[in-house]
């Protein structure tokens, strides 16, 4: 569904992505692991159109989407739940969801109801300003807001970041639930143990390159987890 080839993204002279190639299959949860500074967030930002790649290609359902602006990427059916959630703090929970459906113009009230059914905590806080929510609630709101654009592919950047273990469990059960409902998810995660429990396929990224890929449960899993946390010893 998503095919990334030889993607290079740079900040000035420093290449954060040095030729990344990977694939995300339709209906799967694919997970990107790697230590801090490996370029995971840079990859997500490039896929979402916030950063322009220097070279390489991103194809989505056979269409070339490299270099499109973020709103055009959303229109194609890719939505990113960004790192640190980035909800709209001075807007209500309901308005955050409406903002997520911005491109749909109308007919999204049913979807808002659906979100409230899936995330009952958001329903309770419907009229509350998003900035006053707890970290876990903000993460749920960020996920719900991204879903409001009815994405074919959901990108998630470190959804467990800074959340208490119980809340992390809750977020991952939501991810598993979305997957059961047919969503395709590409997930960046530091929490390798959690991620490998839900993913069907994973990639390991180190220093701007994909250094390993495989299926969870394979023999190399322990080594991958070690490298995801610590980086390779090379």
């Amino acid at each position: 569904m998503l095919r990334v080839q030889d993607l290079v993204t740079a900040y000035g002279k420093i290449e954060a992505l040095k030729g990344v190639s990977l694939e995300v299959a339709q209906g799967s949860i694919t997970c990107l692991l790697g230590p801090n500074g490996a370029g995971k967030t840079t990859l997500m930002m490039t896929l979402a159109g916030i950063l322009k790649p220097r070279s390489g290609s991103i194809r989505f359902s056979e269409d070339e989407i490299t270099g499109l602006p973020p709103h055009a990427i959303v229109a194609r059916g890719i939505a990113l739940v960004p790192e640190n959630r980035l909800v709209f703090p001075s807007m209500t929970v309901l308005e955050n969801l409406q903002a997520g459906a911005y491109q749909r113009r109308s007919g999204f009230d049913d979807d808002i109801e659906r979100m409230f059914t899936r995330f009952p905590r958001l329903k309770e806080r419907e009229a509350q300003l998003a900035g006053t929510l707890s970290g876990g609630e903000q993460q749920m709101l960020a996920v719900a807001r991204a879903l409001m654009s009815r994405p074919k592919l959901l990108l998630m950047d470190e959804p467990s970041l800074g959340l208490a273990p119980l809340v992390v469990e809750e977020i991952f059960s939501i991810i598993a639930e979305l997957h059961r409902d047919g969503a395709t998810i590409f997930l960046v995660e530091q929490n390798a143990h959690m991620a490998l429990r839900v993913a069907q396929r994973f990639y390991l990224m180190e220093q701007g390159r994909v250094t390993f890929s495989g299926d969870p449960g394979s023999l190399a899993e322990d080594e991958v987890i070690r490298r995801a946390y610590l980086g390779s010893s090379r």
């Binding site: 916030i50 939505a79 990113l80 960004p82 980035l86 709209f88 001075s90």
Partner: peptide
């Protein structure tokens, strides 16, 4: 909604398709 989203967080507004 779009205007207030941009005021609140331009990056998040872009990611919401605005």
């Amino acid at each position: 909604i779009a205007v207030r989203a941009v005021i609140d967080d331009p990056r998040a507004a872009e990611l919401s398709g605005i």
